[in-house]
Simulated assay, not measured.
Amino acid sequence: MMANKQYNLISIIYDDLRIYGKWQLLLFLLVLTSAMLVILVTYQTRSMIMVREKLLLEKNVLDAEWSSLILSEKMLSHYSRIERVAIDKLQMRYVDLMQDNKLHE
């Protein structure tokens, strides 16, 4: 009768790799390292793309604000130009309320 002999699978695999599979083990470790580096680079690339998108959105907001400020500046300069022409060419002056009240008394 044949006796049931149990084999330790882990020790068999380790012995085979140590004796016959040094190149295979080295290639396996290189492939594993390469896969981890691909994962790391992909993660960093996606992070950088997200930062870039946020910066582009911020740039668009700032561009819109800049355009609004330019329009406001043009409108305000337009009114100051009218005021300057009224004072210089037409000799118009602001009314002083204190003097106006004294005249009516």
Results as ranks from 00 to 15, higher is better:
Lys5Arg: 09
Ile12His: 04
Ser34Tyr: 07
Met50Asn: 15
Glu58Trp: 00
His104Asp: 07
Val31Gln: 11
Thr45Met: 04
Glu65Asn: 03
Leu90Trp: 06
Leu90Glu: 00
Lys22Thr: 10
Val51Leu: 11
Ser34His: 06
Gln24Arg: 13
Asn60Glu: 06
Tyr7Trp: 02
Phe28Ile: 14
His78Leu: 10
Glu65Met: 04
Tyr7Cys: 05
Met1Arg: 06
Asn101His: 11
Leu29Thr: 09
Glu105Gly: 14
Asp88Val: 14
Ile87Asn: 00
Lys74Asn: 07
Ser47Cys: 11
Arg52Trp: 07
Ile10Gly: 02
Met48Lys: 14
His78Thr: 13
Val61Cys: 00
Glu58Asn: 03
Glu105Asp: 08
Arg18Val: 12
Met36Val: 15
Tyr20Met: 05
Gln99Met: 13
Arg84Phe: 05
Val31Tyr: 05
Arg93Cys: 01
Ile19Gln: 05
Thr45Ser: 06
Met1Glu: 03
Ser77Asp: 03
Ser80Lys: 13
Leu57Ile: 15
Ala86His: 03
Asp63Lys: 07
His104Ile: 15
Asp16Met: 13
Ser77Thr: 08
Lys74Val: 13
Tyr7Phe: 12
Tyr79Gln: 04
Glu83Met: 09
Ala86Gln: 04
Ala3Ile: 15
Lys22Met: 03
Met92Asn: 01
Met48Ile: 15
Ile19Gly: 03
Leu9Gln: 04
Met36Gly: 13
Ala3Lys: 12
Lys59Gly: 01
Ala35Phe: 10
Arg93Trp: 02
Met36Gln: 12
His104Val: 15
Asp16Glu: 08
Ser72Asp: 07
Leu71Phe: 06
His104Gln: 14
Val51Ala: 09
Leu97Tyr: 01
Tyr7Lys: 04
Ser11His: 02
Tyr79Leu: 12
Val31Gly: 03
Gln44His: 05
Lys5Gly: 00
Tyr79Glu: 01
Leu71Gln: 10
Leu9Asn: 02
Ile10Tyr: 03
Arg46Asp: 02
Val85Ala: 05
Ile70Arg: 01
Val61Phe: 06
Trp66Asp: 08
Leu71Asp: 11
Thr33Trp: 04
Lys102Thr: 12
Leu32Thr: 08
Ser67Gln: 09
Ser47His: 09
Leu26Cys: 09
Ser72Val: 12
Gln99Glu: 09
Leu55Val: 08
Leu27Thr: 14
Tyr20Glu: 03
Met36Glu: 11
Met36His: 06
Lys89Phe: 04
His78Glu: 06
Gln6Lys: 14
Met92Thr: 05
Arg81Ser: 14
Met2Asp: 07
Tyr94Cys: 08
Met50Gly: 09
Ser68Pro: 01
Gln44Arg: 10
Val85Thr: 07
Met75Tyr: 11
Tyr20Ala: 05
Ser68Leu: 06
Arg81Gly: 10
Val38Ala: 01
Trp66Asn: 14
Leu76Met: 14
Ser34Ala: 11
His104Asn: 13
Ile13Thr: 04
Arg81Tyr: 12
Arg93Asp: 06
Leu40Cys: 10
Glu83Thr: 13
Leu97Gln: 06
Tyr43Arg: 12
Ala64Met: 08
Asn60Gly: 06
Tyr14Lys: 14
Glu53Gln: 08
His104Lys: 15
Asp16Phe: 12
Gln24Ser: 11
Gln99Ala: 10
Val38Tyr: 01
Met75Phe: 10
Tyr20Thr: 07
Met92Val: 12
Lys89Gly: 03
Leu32His: 00
